[in-house]
């Protein structure tokens, strides 16, 4: 399968901060990727560089084998839906869709209409009169109906309730199954999307900490809890992500190796073994990273 995105030594430095540092990775065609990490980790900056809306300080980005900057062939195959998208003040929803239709060659009116109904969007209402949730729905309609070979959703559902988010997931899967494309999902609601993801990229402080098959990562992350001495014995030689103490009870989040049977080992010591969610893993991982920095100062 072809590579659709190639990032090499990508760095974005501002006067006082470096928001992306020496990042390199590739994405393959027609898969769903989760781009995870906390606010300020550099996700949005990265996505802006992929879509040539921001200029890298150094390193390069190739989408579909070419530089995206001022490249129509590449750009019209990328649809980037972001929470902070600005719209012209006097635009109606229908104007947004018409503009999207004019640029994205795979735009599908039928799907756009269906989604408009699903989200109950008033086509003639002005963008500035929409609620936060409706505005998010507009982005979702554009993101799905454009059927762009690279579709990027950056926190697409601010202000949307669980029902509307459910509609988004359902339509995404349905349409993706029929018209495969590469999707990058960046969100805080990891639990809701973790089963949609084929691969996971975890970013923290501008660096790529993890890039792994979602299933494989899920099988490696777990926590054990028990009394502190036993847990400490168990922890030796293992990759510990996070330690939490409540009285004499210690719970540690760990990253196991694939081939090990972590469960048996833990249970034989009388420890409680619990598989953890991707969301908890990301939270623990990024908390650890920030603590390290604080201690280091």
């Amino acid at each position: 399968m072809g590579q659709i995105l190639e990032i090499n030594g990508l760095t974005k430095a501002y006067k006082d901060v470096t928001s992306i540092y020496q990042m390199s990775f590739t994405l393959k065609e027609n898969k769903i990727y989760g781009l995870l990490g906390r606010n300020g980790a550099g996700k949005t900056t990265l996505m802006h560089m992929i879509t040539a809306q921001l200029f890298p300080t150094c390193g390069d980005v190739k989408v579909f084998g070419e530089e995206p900057y001022e490249n129509t062939r590449v750009l019209q195959q990328i649809c980037f839906i972001k929470e902070s998208q600005a719209y012209p003040e006097y635009f109606q929803i229908s104007d947004v869709f018409a503009t999207a239709k004019s640029i994205y060659p795979n735009w599908n009116d039928g799907l756009a209409n269906q989604l408009t109904q699903d989200f109950q969007l008033p086509l003639n209402r002005r963008i500035k009169e929409l609620s936060r949730g409706m505005l998010s729905s507009v982005g979702i309609v554009v993101g799905l109906a454009s059927r762009a070979p690279l579709t990027i959703f950056d926190e697409p559902y601010l202000g949307l309730d669980a029902v509307a988010r459910g509609i988004f997931y359902d339509r995404l899967i349905e349409d993706y199954a029929e018209y495969p494309r590469t999707v990058i999902l960046s969100t805080h609601l990891i639990d809701e999307v973790s089963q949609l993801l084929e691969h996971v990229l975890i970013i923290e402080r501008g660096e790529l900490l993890f890039y792994e098959d979602a299933e494989s990562l899920r099988s490696r992350i777990y926590s054990v809890s028990g009394s502190s001495e036993v847990v400490e014995t168990y922890m030796k030689g293992k990759e510990v992500i996070h330690v939490e103490k409540i009285g004499s009870l210690v719970t540690v989040t760990l990253l196991g190796k694939k081939e090990e049977n972590n469960k048996k080992q833990a249970e034989s010591l009388g420890l409680e073994y619990v598989p953890i969610s991707l969301q908890k893993f990301v939270v623990d991982l990024t908390t650890k990273s920030r603590e390290k920095v604080v201690k280091g100062q």
Binding site: I32, I173, A177, Q195, L197
Partner: peptide, 15 residues
């Protein structure tokens, strides 16, 4: 179909 399973369980069609 696998796509129906994917929609029903809200999982990736490849899975």
């Amino acid at each position: 179909s696998t796509n129906q399973f994917a929609s029903f369980y809200r999982i990736n069609p490849a899975t």
